[in-house]
Design a protein around this nucleic acid. Structure first.
Lengths: 215, 215, 215, 215
DNA sequence: CATGAATGAGTGTTCATTCAT
DNA sequence: GATGAATGAACACTCATTCAT
């Protein structure tokens, strides 16, 4: 499988044959970009193929149809999304404020600055037409993130660092500013640029301290 | 040719309803629903027309093309979005916490529970392909909302109700949980229902008090 | 302009109602222009109506459909086309050369400079899709013109003015330069303007004298 | 899907004939016929495709749109139209009358009997809506033909074969009967058949000798 | 494996025609 | 008689999908 070209001409021939098993991943990556930019319906397989450096017929060697490519593209980014954050919470030695700051920092790096946000856009744009994708993403990313945050909040309460009566059932509230920032990056950023780091600091500040003056 | 109309359907046949003034609004409303559900590209004008009770050719009596209908649909919901909230801030008699609670309540009613959220979805999904729409929406809705929030925050500071050092340049942080809730309603609500009122309360609680215990 | 109700009664009202029976002719004229410019298929009834100052529904008060208007438009210009020339030939007192010059002069005025040429264009463009029109036009215009020319040629022969062996069965040859000039006016005139009068003189000169030098 | 190939039609199914090089020419030819018959607007790409043995989508593999096919079809017949006649004039050894007869013979073969006439019809029908085509055709065919004729006429004069005072600036007059015959073939031929060869002889006769008797 | 020519089922758009007013 | 809103049948053009090479 690796040696397709039976030593054809001894030197030149391994030109584009070099990665047979890289193809699906390349197509997925290309598809992901196109789908994120244009949405499912407006994405042309010809453009996906061109971005991956092949012709559009080639896509069908690896994916049954456009939708299969779409699903594969989404899946490629959902599962591992928070895997690495998981461990941190369990083993973090310091105070919970520091833990929260660390987790938020990671969120901003990946979700807001990184390209995880395009999955978010796709979910919002196309999610309801692909319910199992939405469900899968919810179960494997959103849910886990919620649990993670809940653990952190509980840790804060248990250690007396956070108020005992914080609304622990709604951890999304705590993370919401980052999600909103991710949206902003994909919409209004060019008209009204956001200084993400300062925004993130404001986020942490308000979530930790609230608005009210401590009279 | 002789047997044309002999009591064929007894009641229904009032085709060609003749309503020049109502039509554009009906088409816009129908279009808005379809565009929000399917996105621009996946929306079929035939479906829009059917939803408005006409045939697709009729759309072209009122709109130059699909894109013109799309723009009209968006515009129909952007401008007046916060007009009514404007007045409240200037004239509110009570303390700023109450004002903020009131404004948040309105936000949840309109943006999260109401159908303003579908505009938000469209902006996220299609915005970058229609830059002037995005810019218009930003200028006429987002910007005004930001200024509104900033005024409230400043009012809180000036009256000594809010901390003097809250990050007043990032009012989006304060409102973000509502925006995220609006998204949630359009994506994961069916898999993981959110009690909006409780969520809103949690939002207000955390934004006002923060997480930290007041030792 | 139609919907202003003030002072309308009493004085103004005979505004556009003044010619009920002028309508068909106006529509025919408008149609003729449009059909000549764009051809049958590319002509829009809306444009015809606009040119006649009515709305397109009005056309159907006078003509069964687009094709009926087309036929009516053609017919309006075919029959009387040569009627007036007929008499000249029979009664002309002078020599045949003068008669031919006179007839040619009329041809150039009407067919080449005038708007009879647009019928010619329509015949060439659309004729084979409307065979009865073509046949009608041939019978009522072309045929008569041919006979006319034949009579003139015969007159010339009989009077010893023309060669006895001129090809009397092909009178079209004699008139052809005028027909070609009519085409030219509608095609290349703007890129390569023709001085019609000089061309007409050349036409007469060659037809009468031929090219050969009379040794 | 299961019943694919069980000896269904025994011979025919060689769909997708795979002929990248032949296709454009086939489509052009098919288009030329349809355009000449129906005109640009009335020609349906589906018919063009059917005539070429493909489906209409295939056209778009080779031509950007209907107009591009139209232009290509016209161009396919304009340039080489008189190329071969060019040489004859320069090298012809005999007298100018013979030369003219030869050139006229070629004209009748190609323009009147052959299918070059359909280009003429298209120019008259559609020319003014495609000005560059008209200009291109004028520059590459009409103009050259005019120059050619002028050269012949001048040759005749210089050799003393033609009258010194023939109207050399209007060579179109000399060729016009052939052009008119080409039109005739496409219009009235079926109602009033023309014996082309006899007509051509009459043309030559009159152009050379004129009508007047050489008293 | 990969190509790319070809297909065919759409969808946006146009426009002749109808009909209630 | 005249209007103009509405219809519905086309038709140009697109693009996911197939398949011979």
């Amino acid at each position: 499988m690796a040696d397709t070209e039976q030593t054809k001409k001894t030197s030149a021939p391994r030109r584009r044959r070099r990665r047979k098993e890289a193809r699906p991943a390349e197509l997925i990556e290309a598809g992901l970009q196109e789908f994120a930019e244009k949405g499912f319906a407006a994405t042309r397989l010809e453009d996906v193929a061109a971005r991956a450096g092949v012709v559009k017929g080639t896509i069908y060697l690896y994916f049954e149809n456009k939708e299969a490519l779409f699903r594969a593209a989404i899946h490629s980014r959902t599962a591992p999304a928070i895997a690495d954050v998981q461990g941190i919470v369990d083993t973090f030695p310091g105070d919970t404020e520091s833990l929260l700051r660390l987790v938020f920092h990671t969120m901003y790096e990946k979700l807001v600055k990184g390209d995880v946000r395009i999955i978010l856009r796709i979910m919002i744009s196309e999610g309801h037409r692909f319910p199992e994708i939405l469900e899968y993403y919810h179960a494997n990313t959103i849910c886990i993130a919620k649990q993670l945050l809940t653990r952190i909040l509980r840790r804060g309460i248990e250690r007396g660092e956070f108020r005992a009566d914080i609304p622990i059932d709604y951890p999304v509230v705590v993370a919401a500013p980052a999600i909103t920032a991710a949206m902003w990056m994909m919409t209004f950023q060019q008209y009204d640029p956001l200084d993400i780091d300062a925004y993130a600091a404001a986020h942490v500040d308000i979530v930790l301290n609230g608005l009210l003056s401590r009279a």
